[in-house]
Simulated assay, not measured.
Amino acid sequence: MEKIPSTKNARRPLVHVSTLATNHLHLRNPWVTLWLSALFPGFGQIFLGSYIKGFLLIIWEIVINVEAKINLAILYSFTGQLDLLGGTVNARWLLLYSSVFVYALWDSYRSTIDLNKFTILAQRARSAVVPFKIDSFEINYLDKRNPWIAAAWSVFMPGLGHLYTHRLPTGFFVLIWWIAITYFSHLMEGVHYSAIGAFDQVKTIVDPQWLLFMPSIYCFSIYDSYVNAVEYNKLFEYEQARFLSSQYQSQAFKKPV
């Protein structure tokens, strides 16, 4: 009779499969996580699977950035319009930004190093994996997914690649924020006026304060969904190998050195 795997009493579980997402440990480059946090505070934490902390940091970044007009200040700095900086930036909000921004960088780098250690220990302990989860509302299971399809869906609309890899919290969170930023930046109107050649209208209607959020979200969505698909495929192979070894491999089998 097949023994049902369980992660309940595991000291260091490798993965937790729920109907909402598959949250698991795998080796990550701390500098990549640091870069994601620099790109947008909170992205590094989401990349590590720390959803609540990541979502709160993203909300903090958007609120403080909009109130302090940081994106406008960046735009004016890079375009040489330094005379506009003084009347644009709100110092009451700007001074709240630096401490949490530095914390997001430090926390993502530190957490990556710690989780990499736990990943190695969990793999050596051959931690159990539950490959299928079902309840009244949703179904989640481990299978092979194409990383390029995940990236392609993220190109079409950020968040869809995460839905393809069944990271529902990240997918819907990114999707909702992308729609909100698209609305407040007037991007669709800008695309319309660009298509008909009315470029002067584009300059007047598009809001750069909101528009400059988009490159960060776009890059993160593509990269994170691609990496998740790759790592889920590795996890699928790990679970299959563990199952076959425990169920069909003879205990007397001598493993090659």
Results as ranks from 00 to 15, higher is better:
residue 105 L to K: 02
residue 99 S to P: 12
residue 78 F to V: 13
residue 71 N to I: 01
residue 97 Y to I: 04
residue 97 Y to F: 13
residue 128 A to L: 04
residue 125 A to V: 01
residue 111 S to T: 12
residue 87 G to H: 07
residue 139 I to Q: 15
residue 118 F to M: 13
residue 103 Y to V: 04
residue 133 K to V: 10
residue 85 L to G: 11
residue 131 P to E: 06
residue 112 T to H: 09
residue 108 S to L: 09
residue 95 L to G: 00
residue 90 N to M: 06
residue 134 I to T: 11
residue 88 T to F: 11
residue 103 Y to Q: 02
residue 123 Q to D: 04
residue 91 A to P: 04
residue 91 A to L: 13
residue 135 D to Q: 09
residue 102 V to Y: 05
residue 125 A to Q: 15
residue 84 L to E: 09
residue 100 V to H: 01
residue 130 V to E: 13
residue 113 I to H: 10
residue 73 A to C: 09
residue 92 R to P: 00
residue 84 L to S: 04
residue 83 D to L: 12
residue 106 W to P: 00
residue 75 L to H: 12
residue 84 L to Y: 01
residue 86 G to W: 12
residue 122 A to Q: 05
residue 139 I to V: 15
residue 128 A to G: 07
residue 100 V to F: 08
residue 98 S to P: 07
residue 94 L to W: 04
residue 117 K to T: 13
residue 116 N to T: 04
residue 70 I to H: 06
residue 124 R to P: 00
residue 112 T to F: 05
residue 114 D to P: 00
residue 125 A to Y: 03
residue 135 D to W: 02
residue 80 G to Y: 01
residue 75 L to Y: 10
residue 122 A to E: 06
residue 74 I to V: 15
residue 104 A to D: 09
residue 101 F to R: 12
residue 130 V to L: 10
residue 132 F to L: 13
residue 132 F to W: 03
residue 88 T to R: 13
residue 128 A to M: 04
residue 117 K to C: 01
residue 105 L to I: 08
residue 85 L to N: 06
residue 133 K to N: 04
residue 88 T to D: 07
residue 113 I to V: 15
residue 74 I to F: 13
residue 103 Y to S: 09
residue 132 F to K: 06
residue 97 Y to Q: 14
residue 136 S to I: 11
residue 83 D to E: 14
residue 88 T to H: 08
residue 94 L to G: 10
residue 72 L to R: 07
residue 111 S to M: 14
residue 118 F to I: 07
residue 103 Y to T: 08
residue 102 V to W: 06
residue 131 P to C: 06
residue 98 S to Q: 11
residue 84 L to C: 05
residue 119 T to W: 03
residue 123 Q to V: 03
residue 122 A to M: 06
residue 101 F to V: 08
residue 87 G to A: 08
residue 126 R to I: 00
residue 95 L to V: 15
residue 110 R to D: 15
residue 100 V to E: 01
residue 129 V to L: 10
residue 109 Y to E: 01
residue 129 V to E: 05
residue 104 A to P: 05
residue 127 S to H: 00
residue 89 V to Q: 02
residue 96 L to W: 04
residue 129 V to Y: 03
residue 128 A to Q: 11
residue 82 L to N: 10
residue 121 L to W: 12
residue 139 I to T: 14
